[in-house]
Every structure is written in structure tokens, then in C-alpha cells.
């Protein structure tokens, strides 16, 4: 199998197809953007037709949706949750707050750049992003998966020290086990 590049290619194509048509998002409403997730998942927009559905625990999930601003306290949980997810895993930053802090740009308790702390694959702008925008964000993620560039875990692994340093800069009490890759 390893040597046979053609069959490997076919397997890769199928894998990529399966991965992009089965995106299980982690049920974690980190911020106020979570209010548009029900709309996205239910009858009018129905993300399930794209294979997007909810997963209850990080072990089962593929996509971590950061729905809006992240406070320092939540960031700590998000990192833990992200590290508990199984690769390949994707992160979607949702709303202006995740991109640059949004209207909380001078708040002492929210982070301003999500991609400093965990690798982000897709940002969806807006406050809030409409469900259509969320769906197109998923579409973008699917394109990235197809192109093979949605490699968050790899980036995280390679730049692990940098990410960890950033994380530890704002999380003062690091009381959970370090991640062994």
C-alpha cells in the first residue's frame, strides 16, 4: 500500500472527501456567536445536509467553532478541549471578536487574536456572521480540506513551543498536564 502510489492516491481522495463531508462540530458555545449556531443547524439553513452535525465531546469532534470573543478563562478551556480533539481537526474563528477582538479591542479580559493561541483554519467575519456566512465558512473549510491545506494539528505540532509560550503568557496558572505529541 505504501509503495503503490496510485492506490494511496485513491485512498487519499476518498479520505479527503469523507473528511470534508462529515464535519462534526464540538458543542461549545464559547461566546455570543453561539446564538446563530442553532439557526444554522436547524430547519431553514440545515447544515446537516453538508454533513455538519454536533458532537458532544472533544474526542468525537472534528471542528472547533470559536463563536466570538474568548475570555482568558475560556481560552484555557478551549486549549484543553482543542488538545483533546483527535486529528485531523479544524478550528473556525467566528465573528470579528475572534479575528481582532472586535468591539472588545481594549478589554482586559478578552484575547484579540485567536490564531496566536491555536491554529485557525477559517475565519468568518461579521458580528454576528449570518448563517449563510457560517455555511460559506464551512464551504471554505471544505475547500481547504480538499486542497490539503487545513493542517492545523501539523502547524500546532511544528510550532508547538511558540503556541505554548503565547498561551502561557496570558494563562497564569497552568494547572493541567502538558500535551505530549
Amino acid at each position: 500500500m505504501q509503495n503503490d502510489s496510485r492506490s494511496q492516491k485513491i485512498v487519499d481522495i476518498i479520505q479527503a472527501y469523507a473528511r470534508r463531508h462529515s464535519l462534526w462540530i464540538l458543542a461549545y458555545g464559547t461566546g455570543c456567536g453561539a446564538i446563530e449556531i442553532p439557526s444554522t443547524m436547524t430547519s431553514r439553513y440545515d447544515a446537516e445536509r453538508l454533513g455538519v452535525r454536533g458532537a458532544a465531546t472533544p474526542r468525537q469532534a472534528d471542528v472547533l467553532l470559536i463563536t466570538g470573543y474568548l475570555t482568558v478563562k475560556t481560552l484555557k478551556r478551549v486549549i484543553r478541549v482543542y488538545e483533546q480533539m483527535q486529528s485531523p481537526k479544524y478550528v473556525i474563528g467566528f465573528g470579528s471578536c475572534a479575528i481582532n477582538g472586535g468591539m472588545y479591542w481594549d478589554s482586559y479580559n478578552t484575547i484579540k487574536m485567536l490564531d496566536q493561541y491555536i491554529p485557525v483554519d477559517v475565519y468568518i467575519s461579521g458580528c454576528m456572521p449570518r448563517p449563510e456566512a457560517v455555511l460559506s465558512g464551512f464551504g471554505k473549510l471544505q475547500d481547504l480540506i480538499k486542497a490539503g491545506v487545513a493542517d492545523g494539528p501539523k502547524r500546532y505540532e511544528e510550532n508547538f513551543d511558540w503556541y505554548r509560550a503565547n498561551q502561557k503568557k496570558i494563562i497564569k496558572n497552568w494547572n493541567f498536564a502538558d500535551y505530549n505529541w
Binding site: Y28, P58, R59, R77, R80, V81, F176, A177, N180
Partner: peptide
């Protein structure tokens, strides 16, 4: 990889 039983999904909380 083996992870200890402390590393479980406790709803994100530590």
C-alpha cells in the same frame, strides 16, 4: 498514545 485517566473530557473544565 496512552493518556492517563485524568486526561478525559470533563466538559473542558480542569
Amino acid at each position: 498514545r496512552y493518556v492517563s485517566t485524568k486526561d478525559i473530557s470533563t466538559s473542558g473544565e480542569i
